Amino acid sequence: MKADRSETDLLHALALGQIEAFDALYHRYKQPVYSNVVKLVRQTETAEDILQEVFVSLWINRQKIDLTKSVGGWLFVVSYNKAASFLKKKVRESAVVQGQADLPDAPAPDDRADEELYGLQMALIEEAVAHLPARKRDVFCRCRFQGLSTEEVADMTGLSVQSVNDYLKQSTRFVRDYIRTNAKSAQLVATTCLFLLLDQ
């Protein structure tokens, strides 16, 4: 398989079940996904487990991925949802240990419902990102979807590291506020939690 094969070609091949396409996408996106997840869970072993779950989900849903959009955005949403689920489980376990047994039981997982939620979240995030000015949108996508460091983005764009940090902070705030304002359900509003964590 050619190293310079386009993402669209890879996604078409992935939808047909070609393992080589999956491997190429895995190697292209494993570091950005891992970087995003480890920022949230702050545990390398857990981040590695979630990384594997994300790419298993990619394979399972290979025929449902929108071929007209970057798979990086899809991976971004799925990885943050899985990281958030891990964090919620940790909070619940901590509450049980501390004797707070009156917390409501977590609902049983529903993969189909999760995928529908991921799709809604991705659409809302993309809608918010589309409203950003071009430079801020570029910085946001490079840092959040591609997992690049602010130093790497500064080198690539010719901006100062401080400018990249400022753009990223402003863009994240805008996206978070946009979600709060435009989400039509509590589940979608919950996506905001991901962006609150991103500011840390």
Rank of each mutant, 00 (worst) to 15 (best):
V54P: 04
E20S: 09
P32I: 03
A15D: 06
E48V: 08
L10C: 04
V54K: 03
T68D: 09
V33N: 03
K39M: 13
Y29L: 06
I65G: 08
Y26N: 01
W59Q: 08
G73M: 03
R62K: 15
P32A: 06
D23T: 10
R42C: 08
V33P: 04
W74E: 11
T68Q: 08
L16Y: 07
K64T: 15
R28P: 03
L51W: 00
F76E: 06
I60V: 14
E20F: 01
N61G: 11
E53G: 05
W59D: 06
V56L: 14
K30A: 14
A15R: 03
G72C: 04
A13P: 00
Q63D: 13
Q31M: 14
H27F: 13
I65F: 08
S70R: 06
R62Y: 08
F55D: 07
F55M: 10
E45W: 12
H12I: 11
A47Q: 00
T68M: 05
Y29K: 03
I65Q: 08
I60Y: 11
V41G: 10
H27I: 05
L14Q: 01
T46K: 15
L16F: 07
T46P: 07
I50V: 10
R62E: 09
V41D: 10
Q52L: 13
L75H: 09
W74H: 11
T44K: 15
Q63G: 06
Y34W: 10
D49I: 08
H27D: 15
Y29M: 01
S57C: 12
S70P: 07
L10D: 03
F76D: 07
P32L: 02
S35H: 14
E53N: 05
G17F: 06
